[in-house]
Amino acid sequence: MSILRRLRASGPRLRPELDDVALGRVRRQLNSPAMPGQDAMRIDQVERLLQEAGTDWDRRAHRLAVLAEAAAPSSLARFWRLRRPDNANPQVFEAWVELVRGRHTGRMEDARAAADRCYGAADALPDDPTPWVVLLGILRLIRAESRDVFAVWHEVTSRDPWNREAHLQMLRYLSPEECGSRGGQLEFVDAVRGGVPSNAPAVGVELTALVDEHARTVARGGVEALLARRQWTNHRATRALDTALADWPRPGHLRYAAALADLNLLAFALVQAGRSREGAGTFDLLGDVVTAWPWSLDGDPLDRFGHWQSKH
């Protein structure tokens, strides 16, 4: 699934599956009202998607994340676990669904049960980082002690060193809004930037941190918010943007599952930095694929994306 394919329709669309066409079909099925007896068919579709991903941990995590969001309002995850009690995939999936629900409400209904499902899946799938990724998200949500969080972080990275979801979870856990500080977050970003390959799934960590800092500044309001664009002129920000611009829009460079999400991130950052004219190639690669974040920081995602894309 190449990001070089331009996917244009009647206009920009929110597509959590990005350019994963098979995932999009199943997501739409999960989002539509279920007919009696249809859950078994839907489970078969989910199982097939995960089997196709195989040991491509990046693709597997992307598919699980999108499907868990779609299944969160329903009882599908529980139905699947009861139908396949000895299978690890339903355990991971239900834990991820519970994590999604917890993010929406601000609390986990039963964090211990969800964590136990992650441990059970990890025992059954010792090479798979995904159960540990979900557990990391659970620990972040419940504001666990840093020693516990870092222990799980090491379990993920020992299996998948540049796991995108895990890096973003750690970035937010270490933020001043959660369990860290701006200094600690910057140390993490510097450590990642010092080693991450330019086409790895975690390559967007530094730019994500900069957009988070921008949003933090704007949220404070006042004169500081009015001058938020200035933060994009410091050395750290200009270096990050210049590096991303030099690499990310190159044909064939970004091939991981969420590449289009990071190109949305780059396009948004260029707009905020007053460098939107440099984003023509990025908008061209994106076609009509919009991610809610970070465009929602500036208003309606489809309106803001469409406005800036129309200028190129």
Rank of each mutant, 00 (worst) to 15 (best):
3 I>E: 07
5 R>N: 07
5 R>C: 02
5 R>F: 04
11 G>N: 05
15 R>H: 04
19 D>G: 02
19 D>I: 09
21 V>D: 13
25 R>I: 15
25 R>L: 13
29 Q>A: 13
31 N>Q: 15
35 M>I: 13
39 D>V: 14
42 R>K: 13
43 I>A: 07
47 E>K: 13
53 A>W: 12
58 D>W: 04
59 R>T: 08
61 A>Q: 10
62 H>D: 00
67 L>M: 14
74 S>E: 07
78 R>T: 08
79 F>D: 10
81 R>L: 15
83 R>P: 00
92 V>C: 10
94 E>S: 07
99 L>M: 07
100 V>M: 09
104 H>C: 01
111 A>P: 01
111 A>N: 01
115 A>V: 08
117 R>C: 04
119 Y>H: 14
125 L>K: 07
127 D>P: 00
127 D>A: 12
130 T>M: 01
137 G>E: 09
139 L>F: 03
140 R>S: 12
144 A>W: 02
144 A>P: 01
151 A>S: 14
153 W>V: 00
155 E>W: 04
158 S>L: 12
164 R>C: 05
166 A>P: 00
169 Q>S: 06
176 P>L: 10
179 C>F: 08
182 R>S: 10
187 E>F: 01
187 E>M: 11
187 E>I: 04
188 F>A: 06
195 G>I: 05
196 V>T: 15
199 N>F: 10
199 N>R: 14
200 A>F: 07
202 A>F: 03
203 V>Y: 05
204 G>S: 14
206 E>N: 08
206 E>F: 01
207 L>D: 08
207 L>C: 11
210 L>K: 07
212 D>A: 05
216 R>K: 07
217 T>G: 02
219 A>F: 00
221 G>T: 12
225 A>M: 04
226 L>T: 05
229 R>L: 03
230 R>H: 11
230 R>Y: 06
234 N>L: 05
235 H>M: 08
236 R>A: 11
244 A>D: 11
245 L>C: 11
250 R>A: 15
252 G>L: 08
252 G>N: 13
255 R>C: 09
257 A>G: 01
260 L>Q: 13
263 L>K: 04
264 N>K: 02
268 F>H: 13
269 A>R: 03
270 L>V: 10
278 E>C: 04
283 F>I: 01
284 D>H: 09
287 G>W: 03
288 D>S: 05
295 W>I: 00
297 L>S: 04
298 D>E: 09
306 G>P: 12
307 H>K: 14
311 K>D: 02
